[in-house]
């Protein structure tokens, strides 16, 4: 098994955390993992992305050229990463913020109204969790329980209160997949 994922969005959409939870969950399931962020001025409100690899083999390059999956949370992110996705790969689109067609007919395209669902749940900031839930539901890269375990083990204390809400968001995302 090898799943190479690029997760991208605006700074503040929680794409880094999404990637870290996925990498942590992969690690807890005994897989080899890496998480590689974009860094620098990009972090300051512009676009942000991270490369996550979950693999049963040791990870060679942590830098992904042709992802199996791209999770795109904003339009500029889709425009940048949709063309890079491997033929037959998965493109997970935050359809609340992205109306435009990705222009790829050779991909499995999963449209998730992540922000809309997050708002329904009462917190727009958990759109990333909806997307993660949808990704896990569609690919089965890791188990949903392990994502929850990763939240419990890695989220700072002040964010632990969000776990029930995050879990709800994950489930709503998974239902869409």
């Amino acid at each position: 098994m090898k799943q190479e994922v690029i997760i991208a969005g605006f700074g503040g959409q929680g794409v880094m955390l999404l990637g870290q939870l996925l990498a942590n969950a992969g690690m807890y399931e005994g897989e080899n993992v890496s998480w590689m962020p974009s860094y620098g001025p990009e972090m300051r409100g512009g676009t942000a992305n991270c490369h996550v690899i979950v693999s049963s083999e040791p990870v060679a390059s942590p830098y992904i050229v042709e992802p199996d999956t791209a999770i795109v949370m904003s339009l500029p992110s889709m425009e940048k990463f949709a063309p890079q996705v491997k033929k037959g790969g998965l493109l997970l689109i935050n359809s609340t913020l992205i109306e435009k067609d990705p222009g790829r007919s050779d991909l499995d395209i999963l449209k998730v109204p992540a922000n809309k669902i997050a708002n329904e749940l009462g917190n727009t900031r958990i759109a990333n969790m909806v997307a993660l839930g949808a990704f896990v539901g569609r690919t089965g890269t890791v188990k949903m329980e392990t994502i929850i375990e990763a939240m419990e083990k890695t989220l700072p204390k002040r964010h632990q209160d969000f776990i029930p809400l995050n879990t709800e968001a994950l489930k709503r995302g998974a239902e869409l997949a």
Binding site: Q20, V33, S34, P37, P62
Partner: peptide
Amino acid sequence: DGMIGQMMEP
């Protein structure tokens, strides 16, 4: 290098 510094691994 920047990659070693910035990336996360187990």
